[in-house]
Design a protein around this nucleic acid. Structure first.
Lengths: 172, 172
DNA sequence: GATCCCTCTGTGATTTTATAACATTTCTAA
DNA sequence: TTAGAAATGTTATAAAATCACAGAGGGATC
């Protein structure tokens, strides 16, 4: 079976990236940045990959691979798990999307183009996700790694808590 | 079916927490700390829970719930997933073990007793895991959270890279 | 010390997430 | 234009986690 609620774009949980933004622009910018970089680096932004990125940019929230798959099927692409996972692997490998380990879900990168170590804030009430930067090598972790002789290649930094909107709701 | 290789204690992948330590003491200390704190706080360190903690202390590496389950069965406990997950939930809730999100696996806490925000270094070659401290509220993430009005409750900080032992092997 | 209630445990079934394996197509470069 | 590599489609399966419900145990209270 596939998931029950194919989920219309932006229907259910709340938007992502606390705070307003020009959503149309962020979809267009994200796609443009990906296209530019793929062209520059000889990467192949194939139709499935492009569609997956577009969906994640459009939805603007963390989406599980199977929810994504439903949307892919609606768009006429293959609907078996590897279709989604392979596209996500490609996009994640090149930094166009990030995996939120805590949620087993994926979000479009909010800072396309820049090389960065992302950090995420995840609302435990509404599942909204916002991307920030982290500087893993700077703090206590970096010190510990240097002291131990551990070579950091990649970091996962995810904060769980309550987003501004839900804080406000709770106060009301 | 259950997993194929029941895995004898400390057989397969390498030890954890880069560097030497008095392993017998760390098992005893971990259990003692847990018992003390459960007594102090009126928590019930039941046989299953105690066994799970003991196994994780003994193994001294990140163990998946199903690997743990095999060891639990060997020890005469129930062998259905909820048995392991419930014990792990209890232990994690009270800080006696930590979940490594990146690996979908669990490790005994290396700093029992202290309240802390753990950070982990995970070797991608040998899966060894070491626990350090992080100070999530201090760095870039804390700044971003304050700026956004996000209330951090818990953080996941996991660095993937190469541990000292594997670096040495690679140099050889 | 019987009873109630709440927590914990055991078990079967199911859901959710992810990967393996392999045939086929598509792209690219020689 | 053709060989090789990369990407896709599909079937099947593995791995991780949860649901639901029945029963057992442990403390409080009367």
């Amino acid at each position: 079976m596939t998931s029950e609620v194919p989920r219309m774009p932006s229907e259910n949980p709340p938007p992502v990236g606390f705070g307003k933004h020009d959503h149309k622009a962020c979809v267009a910018d994200g796609l443009a940045a990906a296209e530019a970089r793929c062209a520059a680096q000889g990467l192949r932004l194939t139709p499935v990959r492009r569609k997956v990125l577009e969906i994640l940019l459009q939805e603007h929230r963390a989406l599980g691979a199977y929810a994504l798959l439903d949307l892919l099927r609606d768009a006429g692409f293959g609907s078996q798990p590897p279709v989604a996972y392979r596209a996500l692997d490609f996009l994640a490998e090149h930094g166009f999307v990030h995996k939120i380990e805590r949620l087993n879900a994926f979000v479009a990168c909010a800072h396309p183009g820049e090389t960065h170590s992302p950090a995420f804030m995840i609302c435990r009430l509404c599942d909204a996700v916002a991307e920030a930067h982290s500087m893993p090598a700077k703090g206590a972790l970096g010190d510990a790694a240097r002291a131990a002789g551990f070579q950091i290649e990649k970091t996962v930094v995810e904060a769980e808590g309550i987003c501004p909107a839900c804080v406000d709701k709770a106060d009301a």
